[in-house]
């Protein structure tokens, strides 16, 4: 049995009549902390502690990998919190990096021609791909003038924040 909002209200009615400022409740399935807020009223912090009861996927080929995939996703999400200053240049090539984590797309729409191919000429403002994060499409700009030397991610591949998306061979244009 999980705690409902009505249960919490009932507990608060009891607590209100006491001098206590905090209540911590723990059962096999959840933890609940209720605290009097400095400005009046109460706050709640709850935690469902039971483990998910996950069934093997129905006739799915990926059933053996589901657990590990989840953990990888969670871990990598936190890792992006503090990205180190990335090196921007290697072998004279400039790196184009993902502005935020999400799914990388090479074309504006499914079935449409890719924004760029290896060899495409780009300048700072050229859109070279899209990163989809939380249903929002974010343009990835080349950031440099030159030629696309390498495309490092496949279409629809997941990109970490600051992941190298492409490498650009810089070009210094004669004036």
């Amino acid at each position: 049995m999980n705690l409902t909002n009505d249960d919490v209200q009932d507990i608060l009615r009891l607590l209100d009549a006491t001098p206590y400022d905090e209540l911590h409740l723990q059962t096999e399935r959840f933890r609940l902390s209720l605290r009097r807020a400095p400005g009046g009223g109460w706050t709640q912090e709850s935690q469902a502690t039971g483990s998910p009861n996950v069934l093997p996927a129905a006739g799915s080929a990926s059933e053996t990998t589901t657990e590990t995939t989840t953990e990888t996703t969670t871990e990598t999400t936190t890792e992006t919190g503090a990205p180190g200053p990335p090196p921007v240049e290697r072998d004279g090539l400039r790196e184009v990096r993902a502005p935020l984590l999400g799914t990388f797309y090479r074309a504006p729409r499914p079935g449409a021609a890719p924004f760029v191919e290896v060899g495409s000429r780009v300048d700072e403002e050229t859109v070279v791909g899209i990163i989809e994060t939380m249903k929002l499409m974010n343009s990835v700009y080349a950031g440099f003038r030159g030629r696309v030397a390498e495309i490092c991610l496949a279409d629809a591949q997941f990109a970490e924040q600051d992941a190298v998306v492409m490498r650009i061979e810089p070009e210094t244009r004669p004036a």
Binding site: P52, A58, E67, T70, T73
Partner: peptide, 19 residues
């Protein structure tokens, strides 16, 4: 797969992965 450890998965009687 991204939601197998989510709060709804913990509260549900059972959870089945759909992809």
């Amino acid at each position: 797969e991204a939601d197998l450890d989510s709060l709804p998965a913990r509260l549900a009687d059972r959870t089945i992965c759909i992809g």
